[in-house]
Amino acid sequence: MQIRMKCNCGEGNCSEWAIVDVQGVVEAQPSFQDRLQNLEIGVLCRPSSQEVYTLTIGYHELTGSKVPLKKPILVLKKTKQSGVDSDRENNCNVELHVVGVIRQRILFKTRPKALISKAKVEAKETQKSTI
């Protein structure tokens, strides 16, 4: 079976995406269960010129590296055109738009490092000094 897709971007110009591959689960705090929209998951950054990335989620810092995928993955967007030609074939009114291509993934497979914020440490020190 042939599936037709639309690609709006030009030849070889599809926007590049990447997968963040994490060993574990990203969970929302119970108080935020109901409103997941627009929550910041974490900060992904590449601290040095090497292909080493850090992802900071909550008080964990993950360290990972970029790995090319064996087979690239296409990111598609499916739109249904309702109504007009409904009596003809069902297949026709579904359109697939290419959003991007994924060729790389950033893999975080090591145990996360716990971040203890500086402010807490300082607080502790001041307490010690008072005692």
Binding site: V22, E27, F32, G42, I57, G58, Y59, H60, P112
Partner: peptide, 13 residues
Amino acid sequence: LDKALHPLLFKFN
């Protein structure tokens, strides 16, 4: 207090 700071947490498997 922590939750206010970090809405999402990571749980490592």
